[in-house]
Design a binder for these strands. Sequence first.
DNA 1: TTGAAAAATTAGGCTCGCCTAATTATCTTA
DNA 2: TAAGATAATTAGGCGAGCCTAATTTTTCAA
Lengths: 251, 251
Amino acid sequence: MNAALSESQQDYLKIVLDLINEKKVARIKEIARRKGVSMPSVTEAMRKLSKTGFVQYSTHEFVELTGKGETAAHRLFSKNMFLKNFLVDVLDIDEQVAEKEACELEHHLRATTLDRLILLYQFLSARQQTDRPSLTLFRKCLRIAEGLSEEDPACGFRFWENRYPHRQSESTVHTLLSKLEQGQRGQIVMLGPDTEIRRRIIDRGLLPGSRFVLEEKGTAGRPFRVRCDGCLIELELIATNMIEVAVEQPN
Amino acid sequence: MNAALSESQQDYLKIVLDLINEKKVARIKEIARRKGVSMPSVTEAMRKLSKTGFVQYSTHEFVELTGKGETAAHRLFSKNMFLKNFLVDVLDIDEQVAEKEACELEHHLRATTLDRLILLYQFLSARQQTDRPSLTLFRKCLRIAEGLSEEDPACGFRFWENRYPHRQSESTVHTLLSKLEQGQRGQIVMLGPDTEIRRRIIDRGLLPGSRFVLEEKGTAGRPFRVRCDGCLIELELIATNMIEVAVEQPN
DNA sequence: TTGAAAAATTAGGCTCGCCTAATTATCTTA
DNA sequence: TAAGATAATTAGGCGAGCCTAATTTTTCAA
């Protein structure tokens, strides 16, 4: 029963997650309104999604996400969020428009491309002190990040050491995820250069822009647990040392 | 009869243009092979496209593009080409993969976003001498390019004056389109910062990466005529002064 | 010039994602 | 607690875009 989700189904899943986060429950009417379709269409879609095990649903009940559905929705959500951020922060697209466009593009972006786009985003957010053309520089960073370069990274340009997030305001504190205390909230700013680990992080849906709560601080032996868009993610200590976050003050 | 083209139809149109350019004629079987569908599907699609006036086709004949179809196909082609270049040149995606991905993304990229992406591509290809964070710099360039900045562009960073195309090899000569002689071939490298004119150029499908022949050199009063992917494009003198091209040596 | 091979078309059918109209279930409140 | 309002479902249908199998048309070569 491991059917691939169609584009439309992905949209439904994302909407359901949104609704549950916002209003605690997802009801047919609201889903229909958000997706801009009629209610019968939603009923039918939910039936299908429940048959493939992404949602739990029987007639006249609220729609809920299964574990599988939650994971999937959560991934989509993060991807979407990042894409929107890219469009808004980098390309200066209007926020409303970016939201819609991100939804559409999302379905067609391969994992590698997303990964590279994240690197580009981070690259552009970093401070540079060099007179070389940016593209050459970016390509070099790509190679270093992918571990494909035999050059000594130290002699190359290390954008990882030298970040300068443009969104950083005076009041936000940037630190590593591993440094946070239990219960603290934050937003991902950057992912480290390690390909293998970065991929794993991205696969779980933790992308620049994602907001989270540190539910359980881990140790060398025990993983960190981070809740993000209603989904629990486990991360080993080593990974949390590669994730730069902006701490949200409880205020 | 000005129906919007579905994604699938857009693909068909692009394939037809490709085939006509490559093999002089587009036959059902080839279209089917390239699109990965069966021949009856193609027949049906062609019938529809001919009803809406994009292709000229009757049973058992080769498929041809009408003027309308050619313009549309040509635009799609350029867009696709640019997108592929972006994926390959900037994000270092494998060429095969980039081609497919460009096709899929293409349909969902709004015109503004494409425009901004072109600017980003050009920005990254430009030489920079500064220690400011790139993103800030890029956003500033965006504003200048859009004419939204009251700042004196001269005191800001002028990436237009300072290009450094990474693809430039020793043998290629870069110049302005207006400087070309009749009959010369080339490839678009950059489009100038003037929003209004740039938009018009982009709308006609002349994007960075497009290859063309200068068919007729114009004057102040008479437009330049450029053929690109089998489509004739007229450009005023002022526009040709804003288009940087790589000249292809006839060898 | 004719007949086999190749190309194209017709016929009929499928799924997906949507729709409207009609009906039924649930909620709310007087 | 019953009736009117609201929400959801069933039934039936539509178009897009694809398919296979069968048939027809065109091409090409002996």
